[in-house]
Design a protein around this nucleic acid. Structure first.
Lengths: 222, 222
DNA sequence: GTATGATTCAAACAAACGTTTTAATTAATC
DNA sequence: GATTAATTAAAACGTTTGTTTGAATCATAC
């Protein structure tokens, strides 16, 4: 009557989402037409408007689908850390890993589309589309709030403003490391073995080094 | 007969370039139409095709115009360092400053459009438009080559592969710091005083911390 | 002043865009 | 099996896209 799984019912929706995810990542929102999406998903042109309402709402759903899980995983990791720690402060490196490491593990999932999505997310950070931006801000609000609070507690001697800056820098290094298409052919080509699993430890080390670096102005390195 | 300066002759070209630069930064290449450009520049619609040939060639010229100067300035700074040093190795922090500091100083120039361009450049790194990508790679080739060589010499004990990775990470942190539209409203709003001059010292400190951070695998911190 | 080349202009081009419409088809309910 | 709702299909909608055209305007040189 119906096929075993994942090919018939409600399948149109996910086929569209999967196709859109890849195409948005490759060509951006404006560079991806409805016809590109529906033809890649092998569905009718009208299907997107039927299932999602509009192109903008489709974009929103592409992000929501994965971002909810990602930020849940991040918060769950933070919950574990805080439960384990009790009253003693948490090591900053653990907090950084809960936030950035979780994202990196998602980005390492090539088969399931996690990698594609993280690339898309990374390029969206620098694409100031007002519509997407506001959506991202709302979707991230709670998660960022809690992680910043955790970092504030973990680094009570560092000015909060400085922590904000460094969190910002870490976001950038991670986004670019994942999504940066290596426009300058820096990494690509210079060494061919492109094992995605090599990225995470290297990036984490870099992020922590940056986080721990002595502050620029006024404060001596101590 | 003719106005004092910069308003009449050959002005159409630069008016188009200036308008395109801002619009590309705000809306991306596909999100910016010829009509948006020409109307902002207050020139006729056909002017772009007349002066540049096509939209793609206009994009190319928008980059070429500033990138040539930027990379010249970087190489000049490196020349000075190498001349001063003679045979003794150059401090990595000086090399990093010659590359990233030069870019940051360009980004600090808001009036002259340097800031706009650096934002555009930053968002382009994560926009894998094949056309622009290849152009950027060629435009950057010599500069990246020489700076990497300088870093290799300055850090002879560090594997070259690791230096490549860290250069890549630094590119990301800088791009995002400048171009990142702060999609998560991390920095914006959390502290209102948004003085662009505050960015450079903070970022440089972060970059150097990341660069000096102990390597992830196999190697003990020493 | 007239001729020449460069530039600007308004208008139009075909192609592609997101969306809507109406009919055909499928799935589920009675 | 008939009825109803959900989904898919093909075709068309009006706009907007990048580009081209041919005449009008400008500056310059003879």
């Amino acid at each position: 009557m119906n096929e075993p799984a994942g090919k018939t019912t409600g399948d149109t929706r996910s086929r569209i989402l999967d196709a859109a995810e890849v195409l948005f990542m490759d060509h951006g929102f404006d560079g991806t037409s409805m016809r590109m999406i529906t033809s890649r998903a092998a569905v009718n042109l009208a299907a997107v408007n039927y299932h999602f309402g509009s192109k903008e709402l489709l974009i929103q759903e592409v992000f929501r689908r994965r971002l909810t899980d990602l930020n849940k995983a991040r918060l769950a990791a933070l919950d574990v850390l805080e439960a384990e720690a009790g009253e003693v402060p948490i090591k900053p490196s653990r907090i950084v890993d809960a936030f950035f490491g979780t994202a990196l593990r998602m980005a390492a999932d090539v088969e399931g589309g996690g990698h594609t999505f993280m690339c898309l997310l990374g390029r969206t950070y620098t694409e100031p589309n007002e519509f997407v931006r506001q959506f991202l801000a709302e979707e991230y609000a709670e998660c960022v709030e809690r992680f910043l609070a955790a970092l504030y507690r973990a680094l009570p001697e560092v000015e909060r403003k400085e922590i904000l800056w460094r969190f910002h820098f870490m976001m950038g290094a991670m986004s670019y490391a994942i999504a940066g298409t290596d426009a300058l052919q820096l990494v690509t080509g210079k060494f061919d073995d492109e094992d995605p699993s090599q990225l995470a430890p290297r990036l984490m080390s870099f992020l922590l080094g940056g986080l721990r670096s002595p502050l620029a102005e006024a404060g001596p390195p101590k």
